[in-house]
Write a protein that binds this DNA or RNA. Structure first.
Lengths: 197, 197
DNA sequence: TATTATCAAACAAACGTTTGATTGAATAAC
DNA sequence: GTTATTCAATCAAACGTTTGTTTGATAATA
């Protein structure tokens, strides 16, 4: 699969734009800034992307497609739901805390998109959540998770994981494996109340 | 404590600006939009706030001061750490999920501030986290929480709570009391693995 | 009268985007 | 093998808007 020069250039633009959008925000990042970072004229950007919003959309769409495919693969695997749960919590935590900037865009910039595009991504996100729920439903059918509100459970998990981008440093004292374990491990004896990490 | 007409007007501006900033984003909300919403000329806004950024800063600063004061009161109370923990988790969850738009700004718009101001708020947020940690330290001294990484625990909780603004509907099937209970209750028997809600 | 509150109008700067021209490297014609 | 054609890639310059902000004047209030 050899990349054309065109595709390479597109990816260069995407990488730089994704980095800037994720770290400085979409509205605070101008096309001039992106072009300057690439040593390229701003007009040239419009040879590859028809608008700034199109560029953002492509980045966000790639990110959600990527996450969804990973989740699909786990759901389709022929393993126990316990292992599916463990796999998805683990992979998602690692994926996210490991700094996928596209996911940061999905988290921060949904409101920066105008209407036809935003609705498309929201639908894809809802689909992602539904996939996630199928695992918990398997668990429920196993009569082991009845007393838990699955919607709250899912979003509590997403919240914990998404927030890592605001504080977690993968080179700090807790590595990615440990973090994923903390987010997904079974709670122990009483007294470990707090946010259930 | 009678409010001058001046103070009243300032609060009107703050309420409208906070609502617009929180829901549409700081950069996407122009001074013209704020003025129009108030049936007021845009220039008049500068009679009350010296700049748009000053307006944002005041909103965010009020929010963090407010949260910190609540937390201080709980920390200073003469009760067991278990009850402190329960109180703070409960109040914070209720506070946040109940739609405090200033907190949304603290979550979303920190990068919209330029340097002297941002550092001030970041320091205050760090102070807030330190206060939170004192409770967990009391718990640790009680030899009941040793095996938990307190930093991870705190941010896991913040993550769960902050994320509620993206999905939680207080008029839905889970009310605020229940949600706060779910976020702060002791985990039960094995099998309730998942994100520990 | 002095101070506060409001306004219409304009300002310079920054924005996303378009235009029109110029290059480079292929492909086709001779 | 040279020349002509084509098309993708790039650029400087400018476009029309929108932005945050200022000015200078007017109305209201005290």
């Amino acid at each position: 699969m050899l990349k054309t020069k065109n595709q390479k250039r597109i990816e260069e633009v995407e990488n730089v734009a994704c980095h800037l959008f994720a770290n400085n925000g979409y509205h605070s990042t101008s096309m001039r800034t992106i072009a300057r970072e690439l040593n390229m004229n701003q007009a040239t950007l419009y040879h590859y992307f028809s608008s700034k919003e199109d560029l953002l959309f492509k980045l966000m769409d790639d990110a959600i497609e990527n996450s969804t495919n990973t989740l699909k693969r786990i759901c389709a695997a022929d393993i126990l739901w316990e292992d599916k749960l463990k796999a998805v919590l683990n992979s998602y935590t690692r994926y996210f805390a490991g700094y996928k900037e596209g996911e940061i865009l999905l988290l921060n910039e949904m409101n920066s998109l105008s209407e036809p595009k935003r609705e498309i991504l929201i639908k894809k996100q809802r689909h992602f959540v539904e996939l996630f729920k199928t695992i918990l439903n398997d668990a429920s059918a196993d009569h082991k998770l009845e007393q838990i509100h699955t919607t709250v459970a899912i979003f509590a998990f997403f919240g914990m994981v998404h927030y890592t981008v605001k504080w977690y440093n993968k080179d700090g004292e807790v590595n990615l494996e440990e973090l994923a374990a903390m987010f997904s491990k079974n709670p122990g004896p009483e007294g470990q109340a707090l946010g259930c990490p």
